[in-house]
Nucleic acid binder design. Structure first.
Lengths: 137, 137
DNA sequence: TGCGGTTTGGTACTTTCGTATGATAGGAAA
DNA sequence: TTTCCTATCATACGAAAGTACCAAACCGCA
């Protein structure tokens, strides 16, 4: 809301400035009114372009659905657990996850078991589905 | 490309019309130049707004990424296999898939094995990742 | 310094998954 | 009609995954 007021303020000021400038210049005979109209056209064309771009960017934001850090901590999921969840989504086996993170397969299993109970699921595929649903992945 | 030319043509014509109008009116003393500048500003602000909106809508189109039926047949994946793939993405076990589709677990395994070789993967989690990558899901 | 959470690891056991192989049946195409 | 594809199911075996329970080391905080 504040931004809207600010933008409109700028617009009004810009318009008034142009009026002043045009009055002076035309009276002084420096420039023709056509030039001012052209300048005004260009400036406001760009301004409209820019404003719409801003607006679009803001409304489009919630599309990619980024990871929801709040949800993660809300569910009590630790960093390590989430790290393993990411590897899970890459289709790695427990053994492979262990190898890439330099820990034993046992540890991976432990983390996964804890993760499953926190996500309230029973299988890794369910965990993936749930994680995507909760925007944790 | 044709549209660009068309739009610029319209713009130039609009500007020239404004010039003509302004010349007549100012000479006739009907309207002040300020009014014309204001009108120009509004028109081109809206125009810029509209143009950017059009542009955004076009560039944003390829976002949703739906299922690629071509890819499916290209890989030789049958309807039944894809059906099972969908159930897989819902986190169901082989047994559960069999129950929802009214077939035995053995059959599910057979379909999945075939699916894995077609997707060139070894595990169900990899199949999910690959399927999403290929826009099959 | 002790408590609680995190990370790590192990053993033992059950369940699920994946592969191999073979078999039957229906439908479409040659 | 024979062949090919799809879908169905079974058995058997090995490989992953998952569960339960336990334990040690570390770290921050009260």
């Amino acid at each position: 809301m504040k931004k809207t007021i600010f933008v409109f303020g700028i617009l009004i000021i810009a318009l008034l400035s142009l009026f002043q400038l045009s009055s002076y210049s035309i009276m002084a005979g420096d420039l023709s009114s056509e030039v001012f109209i052209a300048i005004t056209a260009i400036i406001f064309l760009i301004l409209g372009f820019w404003l719409q771009k801003r607006r679009k960017e803001r409304t489009i934001q919630p599309k990619p659905a980024p990871i929801d850090s709040e949800k993660i901590s809300e569910l009590g999921i630790t960093d390590r657990e989430h790290e393993i969840l990411v590897k899970l989504s890459e289709g790695l086996s427990n053994k492979e996850i262990g190898e890439t993170l330099f820990i034993s397969e046992s540890t991976v299993k432990t983390h996964l078991s804890n993760l499953y109970s926190k996500l309230n699921v029973k299988r890794r595929t369910q965990a993936l589905q749930q994680a995507k649903k909760l925007h944790i992945l």
